Amino acid sequence: MKLFLVKQLNNTLKVVYNSDHDKIKKLKLGEMYQCEVKRPRNIGFHRKFFALVNMVFDNQEIYVNLDRLRKDLTIEAGFYDEWVDFQGVIQREAKSISFAKMKESDFQDMYSKVIDVIVQYFHFDRQDIIDNVEQYF
């Protein structure tokens, strides 16, 4: 069971979402439970990344597949796994950006480098990208 908690001033933890209230009701009173504390990835920033990719997709004529664009941007930003196939050809696959597979700090680094890639290959102005992605987000 995963719960989202926030620390209060009195050093107690309080559940964040209504769904977490329902989950915590299932726990037995007086029982001891072990919890692993992790800081979750920022869902808003994750959505902002997809807004960025959508903005680029809507303003270019090269790609016909949004997911292929996302993967190519990720690879070009340096976030990929590489191997040599049976024919000796180097293959690259975009790293997963799922919450379970990428830390927040790595995601932030990738986001910044993806903007660099967009500027380099699509010749969009960096500040225009930053300003316009807010419209999509």
Rank of each mutant, 00 (worst) to 15 (best):
K101Y: 00
T74Y: 01
E93T: 12
N65Q: 11
N42G: 09
V15C: 07
A51L: 02
V37G: 12
D81N: 12
D22A: 09
G78A: 04
S19Y: 06
K48V: 01
D106Y: 02
D20W: 06
V84Q: 11
I43F: 06
N59M: 08
I24T: 10
I97Q: 06
D81G: 00
F57D: 01
V53E: 10
K113D: 06
V16G: 03
D106L: 13
Y33S: 05
S112M: 10
M32I: 13
M32S: 14
E93P: 06
I43W: 03
D85P: 04
G88T: 00
S19V: 13
F79I: 08
Y111M: 10
D109W: 06
I75T: 00
F79N: 06
H46M: 11
I43N: 11
N54D: 13
T74S: 09
K48E: 08
Q60K: 06
L29K: 14
Q34A: 14
N42V: 05
R92S: 02
Y17K: 07
M55S: 03
V64C: 01
R70M: 13
V53F: 09
V84K: 14
D81L: 03
K95L: 12
V64E: 07
K48D: 06
G78E: 06
Y80T: 04
K48L: 13
M110F: 03
E93G: 05
F49P: 00
E82T: 00
M110D: 04
D72V: 08
H21W: 09
L66Y: 12
Q91T: 01
K26P: 07
K103I: 03
D85N: 15
K28R: 14
S96Q: 05
